[in-house]
Design a protein around this nucleic acid. Structure first.
Length: 571
RNA sequence: UGGCCCUUGGUGUAAUGGUAACACUACAGGUUUUGAUCCUGUCAUUGGAGGUUCGAGUCCUCCAGGGCCAGCCA
């Protein structure tokens, strides 16, 4: 059955941009069409902030039966690279969006853009300026003082045409001349003080156009015209471009263009305890503070993917944060909650011991091995069951045993006490074995054979802990991640500190002696599981030098016990 | 004594002049072979002051606080 009559309640909440589009549609604008675009510059990897824009632009296209173009804003060959183009395409696709045939590059339009520039010159609205960068800055004025007209402002159309042609022909050096729009050097909006629209760049090979050009158009000139050429109806961008909108409109108003798209600005995402500035992410990568763009600690799409975050969770997160013009600071807890919601519903459960402590069940025969059934999901029978091995020698987590309970609420294993082994029997700790240093190295226990799938007679056993069979366990490395920075706004700069000073040295903790239940041996790279009582973990594509699998912790389980411990005055 | 923009609970959003809603967090309980999940309950009169109106979070004025802008970056 088709769902083209899908009820409105199945759609994401309307935001102010969707309301504008609704009004435009009601007013019959744009022939009832909605065309958006996602315009990344290929000079880095996409991050969670881009995901917000991607979900907005592609989401609107989907819901309004329109289309969304992927357009690479590649006007600055100095910083851009083909590898970034490829990574961006991979990430947008992975998020679940498709642009069909609508893959464009601003560089596709270089010839048209050049012709528009010539048109502007002919209309007396642009001129070649010979001011040096330093001189240009002086002439520009300041926030409170108007600028001064360039001495080259009144060159004739013929001279400008000639000079611009020679700029293109490569006659002039980098920085010696630029093409500027002739607007108003006294404008209170600095973007209108005769902005530069073309600059000279020799000796760089553009990833799309090679060495065909030595002049490159600036963003302000390129973006509005690219939008118009593509028939974009709503050009959505972040707040810092608000001051550029008068220039966007001015250029389109001067030229004979196919259409005049509407620029609408929204506030960018600020996520606490991380940074989402391409410059800073690039520095983290280049300075080696992280292992690469896809380091699981990075807020990049590639990093989140390697961490085990699903495309659904990211899209759901983008729905939850909404779209407004207000500055915001989204808590990491919201992202984590969104991730848990998805993974709780879909991740199969497994048992894994991260900090192993040997446990021997003395009244269990040495040669015996039971194959017990364990549900893959406690609330979803459709996810089936698996076999787990129960034997005399097991591993449990060191944190699940204490010789003496620290408080009345502690319900894990203690000396002389009982605890339920998840999916198996109730055991009692009879003896604690220590080494010369007094460190606990082994537990001697006994099990109650009558407690498999049944409560013990005449007593209550509250605690449940996870375990693995020593003989069947798979050795693995587990990487625990924490926030990248120790400050909620590392780049706020309140104390004029560099964000790097807030880098969290404990953002990665590696556990090399972990044991996984045997079923995890079949996991494929990218598979995500809930390690019961620990969190969600994703199998990394890499493995250790000695061939051990590596699991990345996506996010912990919500841990109310940790809160109790903390309130009780630390552990 | 430059311009533009923003301001609803701890956080993010909703309410489009008709009597503050949702999610996250926190806290208090209940269920539970994951201290998970799930369930229940509690937590704001909308930055401030005036004004318009029968009625203002929504409209107007002023004030305060915050953000962005002086790249031949995007």
């Amino acid at each position: 059955m088709e769902n083209n009559n899908a009820p409105e309640d199945s759609r994401p909440a309307g935001n102010f941009i969707r309301q504008i589009i609704d009004q435009d549609l009601a007013a019959g604008k744009n022939d009832g069409k909605v065309v958006t675009r996602f315009p990344p510059e290929p000079n880095g990897y996409l991050h969670i902030g881009h995901a917000k824009s991607i979900c907005l632009n592609f989401g609107i296209a989907e819901d309004y039966n329109g289309r969304c173009h992927l357009r690479f804003d590649d006007t600055n060959p100095h910083k851009e690279d083909l590898s970034f183009v490829e990574a961006i395409k991979r990430d947008v696709q992975w998020l679940g969006f498709s642009w069909g045939e609508k893959e464009f590059y601003a560089s596709d339009y270089f010839e048209q853009l050049h012709d528009y520039a010539v048109e502007l010159i002919k209309k007396g609205k642009a001129y070649v300026c010979d001011l040096s960068p330093d001189e240009a800055r002086e002439y520009r004025g300041t926030l409170t003082e108007p600028g001064k007209d360039s001495p080259y402002r009144d060159r004739s159309v013929e001279e400008n045409l000639d000079l611009f042609a020679r700029m293109r022909a490569g006659e002039f050096e980098d920085g010696s001349r630029v093409l500027r729009a002739k607007i108003d050097m006294a404008s209170s909006n600095l973007n209108l003080r005769d902005p530069i629209i073309y600059r000279i760049r020799h000796g760089v090979v553009h990833h799309q156009t090679g060495d065909e050009w030595c002049i490159y158009p600036m963003y302000d000139f390129t973006h509005c015209l690219s939008d118009s050429i593509e028939g974009i109806t709503h050009s959505l961008c972040t707040l810092e471009f608000e001051d550029h909108r008068p220039l966007y409109d001015w250029i389109l108003d001067q030229l004979a263009t196919p259409c005049h798209p509407q620029q609408i600005e929204f506030s960018r995402l600020n996520l606490q305890y991380t940074v989402t500035s391409k410059r800073k992410l690039t520095e983290l990568v280049e300075e080696g503070l992280v292992e690469g763009w896809d380091d699981p600690r990075m807020p990049t799409i590639a990093g989140l993917r390697r961490r085990g975050v699903t495309p659904f969770a990211i899209r759901d997160f983008c729905d939850r944060i909404g779209v407004t013009k207000a500055d915001n600071s989204v808590e990491m807890g919201l992202l984590e909650s969104t991730i848990r919601d998805d993974l709780n519903a879909h991740a199969p459960r497994r048992m894994a011991v991260l900090r192993p402590l040997k446990l021997v069940i003395e009244n269990y025969p040495e040669d015996r091995c039971e194959q017990l059934n364990a549900a893959n999901h406690p609330q979803n029978e459709d996810m089936g069951t698996r076999k787990i091995h129960f034997t005399r020698e097991l591993y449990i987590d060191r944190d699940d045993f204490m010789e003496v309970a620290p408080n009345k609420k502690f319900k894990r294993l203690v000396s002389g006490g009982e605890v339920r082994l998840r999916n198996a029997y109730v055991i009692r700790c009879d003896e604690v074995i220590k080494d010369e240093q007094g460190e606990i190295i082994e537990l001697r226990c006994s099990y109650d054979a009558a407690t498999l799938g049944a409560n013990p007679e005449g007593r209550k056993v509250k605690g449940v802990i996870h375990w693995v069979s020593a003989a069947h366990a798979i050795a693995a490395e587990v990487r625990l991640y924490d926030r990248l920075f120790s400050h909620p706004a590392p780049d706020a700069g309140k104390e004029a500190k560099d964000y790097r000073e807030y880098f969290n040295p404990d953002s990665l903790r590696t556990l090399t002696q972990c044991y996984l239940e045997a079923a995890l041996g079949e996991a494929q790279a990218g598979d995500i599981f809930q390690f019961e009582r620990e969190g969600y973990f994703c199998l990394d594509p890499a493995q250790t030098a000695d061939g051990k699998p590596i699991f990345n912790r996506t996010v912990t389980l919500r841990d109310s016990w940790a809160k109790i411990e903390k309130q009780a005055g630390g552990k």
